[in-house]
């Protein structure tokens, strides 16, 4: 069992937790993920490691409530225990040897983009962070990003925070001004990563994306998380989750993520009703 030692609600649906898991904390690097189960009957949920505290032996996770399992997780408080917490899984992100990197985060994806930005910063790279949200209420980790970025650009769909527009607008503007990046690292919704990659391909800048397909075991056994990258089948759990964004078949990935949408919606509603009953 793994204890929740800290909890902070970043916005109404995005929650940060520190979990006591010394072995994982000792090993986890930026870009890797863990799998947790809330209880004995729970689903295996993959979440990217947002940070670690080796001294304390804790691992920070940030998740958005999107379905039944994350809703259950969101109801856990400091002092509660999680049934399972395993990792670190996947290959760490490449963060060494860069001069100037643009890190792009979208929505809850910023939670994953932040540790990568931090690791790049610690390795001496100049970091430009472009983050995008739907509106001001959803903005997360602003201070944390600023701390590790040489430049921080905030975008929102409705203009209620930072500049109105998409992350691609901000990136294109920088590139048009002649800004040079060794690499773009982009983490967020699939559709956003797709369009960032289309843009950077035009400018011929290598772009790495972090893929989050549906997973079960996360250790290279079930093949559920397969993607087509450069025309070949790759498994996000052992070959990734980072891939060359110019090689990823995003349309296929977008389709595969929809596989259980109806089931997930039904389960989510059931779980919502369950909690409503408890409140009564």
């Amino acid at each position: 069992m793994f204890k929740i030692v800290r909890r902070r609600d970043l916005n109404p649906t995005v929650i940060m937790m520190d979990i006591e898991a010394p072995l994982v904390a000792n090993k986890a690097k930026a870009g890797q993920f863990i799998i947790l189960r809330v209880d004995e009957e729970g689903e295996r949920i993959p979440l990217t490691v947002a940070g670690t505290n080796k001294k304390e032996g804790t691992v920070e996770i940030i998740f958005q409530v999107v379905g039944a399992s994350t809703l259950l997780l969101a109801h856990k408080q400091v002092g509660d225990y999680l049934q399972d917490f395993v990792g670190p899984l996947g290959e760490p992100s490449e963060v060494e040897g860069f001069n100037k990197v643009c890190v792009i985060g979208g929505g809850a994806g910023c939670a994953i983009a932040l540790p990568v930005a931090r690791a790049l910063h610690e390795n001496g790279a100049k970091v430009t962070s472009i983050v995008g949200f739907r509106n001001k209420d959803l903005v997360i980790l602003e201070d944390e990003f600023k701390e590790v970025s040489d430049e921080y650009i905030l975008m929102s769909d409705d203009g209620s925070a930072g500049t109105k527009g998409l992350v691609t607008n901000a990136l294109e503007e920088l590139l048009k001004k002649g800004e040079k990046f060794d690499r773009v690292i982009c983490i967020g919704p699939l559709i956003m990563m797709k369009f960032v990659c289309l843009l950077t391909k035009k400018y011929n800048i290598k772009t790495v994306v972090s893929m989050n397909p549906i997973m079960i075991d996360g250790t290279g056994m079930c093949g559920c998380c397969r993607l087509t990258v450069g025309g070949k089948v790759k498994f996000a759990c052992v070959d990734g989750p980072d891939f060359d964004g110019h090689e990823v078949d995003f349309d296929e990935a977008i389709n595969r993520n929809k596989m259980y949408r109806d089931f997930e919606r039904k389960k989510y509603e059931e779980t919502c009703n369950l909690f409503k009953k408890e409140v009564k």
Binding site: D217, M221, G223, C224, N255, M259
Partner: peptide, 15 residues
């Protein structure tokens, strides 16, 4: 092979 509804036996059995 990567269409939805195509499983490896491992995935189908693990689920």
């Amino acid at each position: 092979e990567n269409l939805n509804g195509v499983y490896s036996a491992n995935e189908f059995l693990t689920r």
